[in-house]
Design a protein around this nucleic acid. Structure first.
Lengths: 145, 145
DNA sequence: GCTCTATCTTACGTGCACGTCAACTTCTGG
DNA sequence: CCAGAAGTTGACGTGCACGTAAGATAGAGC
């Protein structure tokens, strides 16, 4: 604990989730701790916490299920892995393929965010229309004479 | 069917849900058909369809569960019911109370929509940063010399 | 060394939002 | 009038995302 790593309980509290949730995400291969203690306890880094927050964001804000999130993170992971061996230069065809996959997923995600924004604006317009009607009702109610 | 009412299957298809879903919403007192046929088949109006679409919107866009949605629609229903007997003038104290409730829920909803929008913007900024990095990678990959 | 809290694995339980099957009735086109 | 599609009420099943309890082990403080 004197080093920079975090135990599962600390990570869970930071992200507002339970320890069970972290173990479940690990089971689904969404988030593995960067290391373990000698006795086998999970040790998380700040980067791991960031990944967890990203998962939660995609889940709560975008409404994706964990399988979709796994696909999204998986594509980014493959690309990141590729980057580390990029100048080592494996197979350029495979590089193009993986980058194209990441770009495709990124495009699709941005489109979905735009759509969600549009729907959100619709909901907001609806609510504001209702708010105006409420104010009108309140005005009539307060000046009965 | 020569009149304006719709059967459950037509309503379900329009909203992209199943008949089971409609019966389930009725069980939860979220959406009751405006009428029934002589034999007991549910008959929905266009207004009912609108309410269904509203439910779906709150569910999918805002991520509310059906109990929350019931509370939201319930407050609006009570206010609408009150409006119809408004100039009949029941008890003005009760009127104020119900209007205040509707306004409170409306305020809270608008706040939640704003928060969701802010989070969506964060996600979008994240995605766009990634997209820029992808384009940079593609540029390097295509001009290896 | 000892205690007490945190974490470990394993496994069954839970709440929500429906899906699905059965047996029956109702509606609709010909 | 009648076949077939669509609708009805139960009632049990399902998938997801965890919750929870049990029993063992590990780690921090005194």
């Amino acid at each position: 604990m004197t080093d920079g790593t975090l135990r599962i309980g600390e990570v869970a509290e930071r992200a507002g989730v339970s320890c069970r949730t972290l173990r479940y995400y690990e089971e689904l291969r969404l988030l593995a701790p960067s290391g373990h203690s000698a006795g086998g306890a999970r040790r998380y880094t700040e980067e791991d916490v960031g990944r967890l927050l990203r998962i939660r964001e995609l889940q709560e804000v975008m409404g994706f299920d964990l399988e979709e999130i796994g696909a999204i993170l998986g594509a980014e992971d493959r690309l990141a892995e590729l980057r580390s061996e990029w100048h080592g230069g494996a197979r350029p065809e495979r590089q193009e393929e993986i980058l194209a996959e990441a770009v495709k997923i990124n495009d699709r995600l941005r489109q979905q965010v735009r759509e969600k924004r549009a729907k959100l604006d619709e909901v907001m317009a609806d609510l504001e229309a209702k708010a105006r009607r409420y104010r009108e009702l309140a005005r009539r109610s307060k000046t009965p004479g």
